[in-house]
C-alpha cells in the first residue's frame, strides 16, 4: 500500500516527508508502548501511536520504519517533526482513534505481518 493511500484512508495530514508519499509499505503496527513495538521485528514499516515524544521517532528509526501516524489528532513538536524529517520518514496525524485507524488500514489490506509472514 502506498503511504499516500494511508493518508487518504485515515484522512490524515502530512507533517513531514511529503516527497516519500509514493513509497510502498507492506505492514504496520499500532501501540503506545515502545518496548512492545521493539519486541516484534517483522519489517513493519508503519507505526500508529497515540504517544507523542522523541522516543517514538527513535523507536521507529531503530526498527527501520518509514512512516509514523499519530492518532487522536496528536500534534508532535517542531523538534520531533525535524527529527523524523532528517530520518527520511513520513509523519502523519489523523483525527481517528487508534482502533478505527488500524481497522481502516487492515480491512484495506495492510496487515500486521507484511510479505515475510510464515
Amino acid at each position: 500500500m502506498k503511504i499516500n493511500v494511508i493518508k487518504e484512508l485515515l484522512e490524515g495530514r502530512v507533517l513531514c516527508g511529503e516527497d516519500h508519499l509514493d513509497r510502498d509499505v507492506y505492514s504496520a503496527c499500532g501501540s503506545d508502548m515502545m518496548s512492545d513495538v521493539l519486541a516484534y521485528v517483522k519489517d513493519q514499516a508503519v507505526l500508529l501511536t497515540g504517544l507523542v515524544n522523541s522516543q517514538v521517532i527513535r523507536t521507529a528509526e531503530m526498527m527501520d520504519m518509514v512512516c509514523i501516524v499519530f492518532v487522536r489528532s496528536k500534534q508532535p513538536t517542531k523538534e520531533m517533526i525535524e527529527l523524523a524529517d532528517e530520518c527520511g520518514m513520513v509523519m502523519l496525524t489523523t483525527d481517528l482513534r487508534m482502533y478505527e485507524a488500524c481497522g481502516r488500514l487492515f480491512t484495506n489490506g495492510l496487515t500486521g505481518y507484511g510479505e515475510s509472514h510464515e
Partner: peptide, 18 residues
C-alpha cells in the same frame, strides 16, 4: 515512565532476544 512509552518490562528480554 510508562506514560512515556517504556516500563513494560520488555527491555531486558528484548536485549536478550536480539
Amino acid at each position: 515512565i510508562r506514560s512515556l512509552g517504556f516500563g513494560a518490562g520488555m527491555g531486558l528480554p528484548n536485549m536478550k532476544r536480539y
